[in-house]
């Protein structure tokens, strides 16, 4: 799951604990059905562009969605989606 990018460690957003901040490095299109253009575009539209700071506020129980803070907006992201968002943890930057 871990990937190297310019020597920094990229992890899926879901690996961050509550209260941790990451910087979006890339969004990886998933496997499976549907074209990736749709949800990637949607994430971009909501402000999750590469380089954006993202704070994990909390995650819903039962493996539920994440609540994140991006550009001053509180967003709920489904877990499957959050797994496709790769970030670099802030303290490692």
């Amino acid at each position: 799951m871990e990937r190297q990018s310019n020597g920094r460690q990229e992890v899926p957003l879901t690996w961050l604990r509550e209260g941790e901040v990451g910087i979006v490095s890339s969004i990886r299109g998933g496997c499976g059905r549907g074209h990736r253009w749709g949800f990637e575009k949607r994430l971009m539209d909501m402000g999750l562009t590469p380089g954006t700071e993202i704070l994990v506020v909390r995650s819903a129980p039962f493996h539920g969605p994440l609540e994140v803070l991006v550009r001053g907006t509180r967003l709920a992201l489904g877990r499957g989606l959050a797994e496709k968002i790769f970030v670099v943890k802030k303290e490692n930057v």
């Binding site: 549907g34 509180r74 709920a76 489904g78 989606l81």
Partner: peptide, 13 residues
Amino acid sequence: PGEPTALIMEMPT
């Protein structure tokens, strides 16, 4: 047909 749904939702104040 179409994409499976994923939650991307604003939680307004």
